[in-house]
Simulated scan of single mutants.
Amino acid sequence: MRVIKRIAVLTSGGDAPGMNAAIRAVTRCALAQDWDVLGVRRGYAGLVEGEVEPLTGRTVSNIMQRGGTLLGSARCPEFETEDTRRKALYWLQQNRVDALVVIGGNGSQTGALALAEMGVPVVGVASTIDNDLAGSEITIGVDTALNIALEAIDRLKTTASSHQRAFLIEVMGRKCGYLALMAGLAGGAEIVVIPERETTPEEVARQLRAAYERGKKHALAVVAEGAVHNGGKLDAWFREHSAQIGFDLRTTTLGHVQRGGTPTAFDRLLGTRLGAGAVAALMRGEQGVLVGLNEGRVATTPLKEVAGVRKVIDPELFRLASVLAQ
């Protein structure tokens, strides 16, 4: 088993509430093993440029309640090239880094796998508000983003009922409809539009009209940003077909407001557990794995089984949303 004396940790891709809890747990658990810890600024971009700083127990003090990431993040499309990855490998070797912890989503873990295949001992931590990453039933940031979306839905429902309106509410999630589906279920939406199941504007109009004809004072459609007919396209369609709804219609796009804010207790605990799990995996000699939550337990999955694999949504949940909307 490789002797570890120093590790580095970075956050990559979109920020997610709870990342700071993971950074804190990685740092303090590593320090408890007498390992040095280096924090990499700006994700893979900072790794290539050697933008690092030592992390101590005090450095990561009082950060759990903050959204975003202490270390910052940045997109680095150049990391897809071997030449760029070799620059990162050179920096790791020059600074005697024995292992790397990568906190991030699908793209981040694809980069982690590429480094692992070059011989770098890497452990990933599942973190993305989209919840599209295989290897973890739920990822860091999802619970906070979902609660923010749900609070917005509850507020908009009050306004919609007061003015007898319909609302289209677009939520984030990229090509994964998890946030939209769960927000729709928990928020009592009349219809949910997700990328995994194409829904025509006519079908959305039928469901909103049906709510109007049942005598409802409002109607809600929750739409995933990655759907074929997303919020913008549906809004444009309804501007030309407003008579088909019965209600006056408004569109709200939540956007990046879902990423910010104070992490929920669940995300703080999940970040802590997965961060600690990453250090535990390194202590066991594991590398090239993702640390996630499966069946309520912290577990590891080979990065080869995770990178580039999009999680599948349970179709039964979509059926349930349709039944409950009636």
Rank of each mutant, 00 (worst) to 15 (best):
R2W: 07
V3T: 15
I7G: 14
T11M: 12
S12E: 00
G14T: 00
D15G: 07
A16F: 04
A16V: 03
A21P: 10
A22P: 07
I23T: 07
R24M: 14
Q33W: 13
Q33D: 05
G39V: 14
R41N: 13
R42K: 14
V48H: 07
E53D: 00
E53S: 02
G57D: 01
R58H: 03
S61G: 00
I63A: 10
L70A: 07
L70R: 12
L71Q: 06
L71M: 01
G72V: 03
S73E: 05
A74K: 11
E80R: 15
T81G: 03
D83W: 08
R85F: 02
R85H: 05
W91I: 03
W91L: 10
Q93A: 08
V97R: 11
D98R: 05
A99D: 06
L100Q: 01
V101T: 05
V102L: 00
I103K: 08
I103G: 04
G107P: 04
S108D: 03
G111T: 09
L113S: 08
E117Y: 12
P121K: 15
V122N: 10
V123I: 02
V125L: 02
D132T: 01
A134E: 04
A134I: 06
G135F: 01
E137P: 11
I138D: 04
V142S: 15
D143Q: 15
D143L: 13
L146P: 12
N147C: 13
I148Q: 13
I148K: 13
L150P: 11
D154G: 15
L156S: 13
L156D: 09
S162Y: 12
A166K: 10
F167R: 03
F167V: 03
L168W: 01
E170A: 04
C176F: 07
Y178R: 13
A183T: 02
G184F: 06
G187M: 00
G187W: 03
I194M: 02
P195H: 09
R197M: 12
R197F: 13
E203A: 11
E203N: 08
R209Y: 10
A211C: 09
E213M: 08
K217S: 15
A221Y: 10
V223N: 14
A227M: 00
A227Q: 04
N230A: 08
G231A: 03
G231C: 07
K233Y: 11
W237E: 02
W237G: 06
H241C: 11
S242V: 10
Q244C: 11
R250W: 03
T251S: 05
T252L: 05
T253R: 06
R259D: 03
R259I: 02
T262C: 13
T262R: 15
P263T: 03
F266V: 06
F266S: 09
F266P: 08
L270R: 01
G271H: 10
T272K: 14
L274Y: 07
A276F: 12
A278E: 01
A278S: 03
V279R: 08
L282I: 04
M283S: 00
M283N: 07
G285Y: 13
Q287R: 15
G288V: 07
G288D: 04
G292W: 01
N294P: 06
N294R: 15
R297H: 12
R297Q: 15
V298K: 05
V298I: 09
V298L: 07
A299C: 10
T301N: 09
E305P: 08
R310S: 11
P315C: 04
E316A: 15
R319N: 11
S322E: 14
L324N: 10
L324R: 12
Q326D: 14
